[in-house]
Computed example of a mutant assay.
Amino acid sequence: MSFLKQEGKSLADIQDVASPALTLNTELVSAINSLVQKCQTASPVEAQNYRKLRTFSGLTPTPNGEEDYEVWAEHTTHILEEWQCSDNVKKQRLVECLRGPAADIVRFVKVENPSATSCDYLKALDTAFGPTENASDLMVKFRNTFQEKGEKLSVYIIKLDKLLHSVLRKGGLKSSELNRLRIEQIIRGALPDDMVALRLRMTHKFCEPPPFTELLKEVREEENMIHNRSTVQATVTVSSVASDKTDSADCEVELLKKEIRGLRSEMARLLSAAVAPVTSDTPKMHSLAVTTGRSALSKAGGGENIFCYKCGENGHFKQDCANEKNLRKVNRLIKMRRVMGNYPGAQ
């Protein structure tokens, strides 16, 4: 305050001097903010949407980490079409991903034509590394591509669409003709026993040809439905076969049980007949039969050929002998008969 008094100033004078400076700083900040907003608005959109392209060199065989030209060209063309940026930026991004012979091709094009566009670069690369067939040749190849045995219709459609885009890149057709040509070739080239293709043959004339995504989605859904239906039918068939086998096995078991019961009853009957009690008449009948046989043998003249093993006399057996034992005579007769070879055996 003493300083202000010496200078002849007051506090109000200081506030008047400070307020213009404060106003100046505020205007400067506002101007800077406006400049930043303008810079952000004017910044290229391509910097936000930039995606690095895949590397391609054109070397043969294809190095590790790279793809062949057909796959690379299709991917690069698709990305360049999506980018909303200037053609200079597209050329810059395209040159960044090229190596070796591919980079040389683009450099030659730039030297010959400094105003060449990114499409000119792609055409030069296609001439150097792409297929040698022209649009007509590729269309003939498309017309002669058929569904193979065991190949799904969805896989066949993807294969056809790849050929169609090759023809499109060669300038052999317009993009508006893709759907019509695709459905026509599916009708021609699909297998006759494919159920999904059969449905397309019956209905394609009643509606406009669908685009690729809708057609592929519809075909895959039908293929999945047919697969699930066949799986369920196979499961039911296996179950019925298993039940039939179980029923036949049960029938065989029942038959075996019946046969076993019959065998058991037959065995019991035979055992009961084998152990049947012998009646009192059985010995008498046996003795009568033996006596009758012996008497018949004696009457037939066989009495002189037999002798008694008790007394040694001829004409009767030991069971019928009433004489005393004479073992010496019996042994002598046995020895004589052995020498003569007329030994009847033990009685």
Rank of each mutant, 00 (worst) to 15 (best):
G189Y: 00
Q37N: 14
V29T: 07
N113T: 12
F108R: 12
G345C: 02
D137L: 09
P192Q: 08
M1W: 02
T292V: 12
N323T: 04
K141H: 15
I183M: 04
G262L: 08
A73K: 08
G312A: 00
L198P: 15
R107L: 02
L198W: 07
V167P: 08
L288F: 13
S136I: 10
P283Y: 02
G171W: 01
A31R: 01
K38R: 09
G341A: 03
H227E: 15
S166K: 02
K123W: 08
P277V: 06
L160G: 05
I183P: 06
A197F: 00
E148M: 04
P344C: 01
M336P: 10
L200N: 05
K325V: 01
L98S: 05
P211K: 00
Y69H: 10
V275K: 09
E148Y: 11
K329V: 00
H286F: 12
Y69V: 06
E313C: 07
C251K: 07
Q15A: 14
S240C: 06
K329Y: 01
M1D: 13
Y156V: 04
V278Q: 14
L122H: 10
P131A: 07
M202H: 11
Q40G: 11
A276Y: 13
P44R: 07
Q6E: 03
K38V: 04
H165M: 05
N64M: 10
E46P: 15
M285V: 13
M267G: 11
D16P: 11
F108V: 13
R99E: 14
M202I: 11
R180V: 09
C85Q: 00
S86W: 04
F142S: 04
S19G: 14
E304C: 06
K257E: 09
E184N: 06
P209T: 02
N224Q: 03
R220K: 05
I158D: 15
C119I: 07
L11Q: 10
S298T: 14
V196L: 01
Q347H: 04
A124W: 08
A31N: 05
S272K: 11
A197R: 00
S10G: 04
T145V: 08
I226S: 03
N144T: 07
T231Y: 08
Q6G: 09
Q147H: 03
L333S: 04
A289L: 05
C321H: 03
Q147N: 07
F146Y: 14
V278R: 01
Y156T: 01
K258M: 13
G301M: 04
D68E: 15
